[in-house]
Amino acid sequence: MTATLSPTPLPLLSNLPLARTAGWQYVLRLADNALILGQRNAEWCGHGPVLEEDIALANISLDLIGQARLLYARAGELEAELTGRARHEDDYAYWRGEREFRNWTLLELPHSGPLAGTASSDRDYAVTIVRNFLYSALMVELWSALAGSRDAGLAAIASKSIKEARYHLHHGADWLVRLGDGTELSHERTQRALDHLLPYMNECFVPDPVEQEAAAQGIAVPTAELRPAWQATVEQTVAEATLTLPAATGFVSTGKQGLHSEHMSYLLAQMQSLARAHPGAHW
């Protein structure tokens, strides 16, 4: 990823001023976050380390994909207000290209650790747990704040999602302690996962024009304001898990600008290929 790349304008709306599209773009980001992590976690379905965790990950995915559906429905309404043409949740999920997805890069990374050579390397449950923990610790704060959004549709979705995010945080924190303060091997792998993933959280807190405009309109909340609360949860749990919080400054990923890691296209290929091979199919 180099500085010469620039974000791709979203189709149809590139000629509209940001003041009009910011709310829609912001909701779409939240939807993409939920969908992409839901898709990733669903990869454990049938492959969980123990039966309870297999079921837990499937349940968490179900919540996330449910949140994504609600958010895409809201995005579709907002888009229709701009263009007169509504897109359906399936249009957003299955018929957009990589550069049109605006999820945080953290959420598209594979379950394998940093030393893996390819996207298809072995899954590491420590990576799964650390990511879910970091994400849901933030989403508990973000959904709480968004419950007061001026966008009534988004506020309603946030009020539901917070309850689910709390359970996801319980699960992630629980297992972070169990793995971090577990065996020598589980500790080492969890520490490695934390070292690998924490830098990707910077993206969540870096302000950008879409978030700033949506926040100015009362639709969004500047995520940077939530950082202290998130940091407190992370520090407390990481300490309890006997792990070390790495320094994670400098690196900022760019998924929310549409510039993704090399792993994103593989994820989309798997998620979208069936819908694209059989357009309009129902079952």
Binding site: K163, R166, Y167, L169, H170, A173, D174, W175, V177, R178, D181, G182, E240, A241, T242
Partner: peptide, 10 residues
């Protein structure tokens, strides 16, 4: 459910 269910650290 605001309180976390936690495994007890060793």
């Amino acid at each position: 459910p605001t309180r976390l269910v936690r495994f007890v650290p060793r």
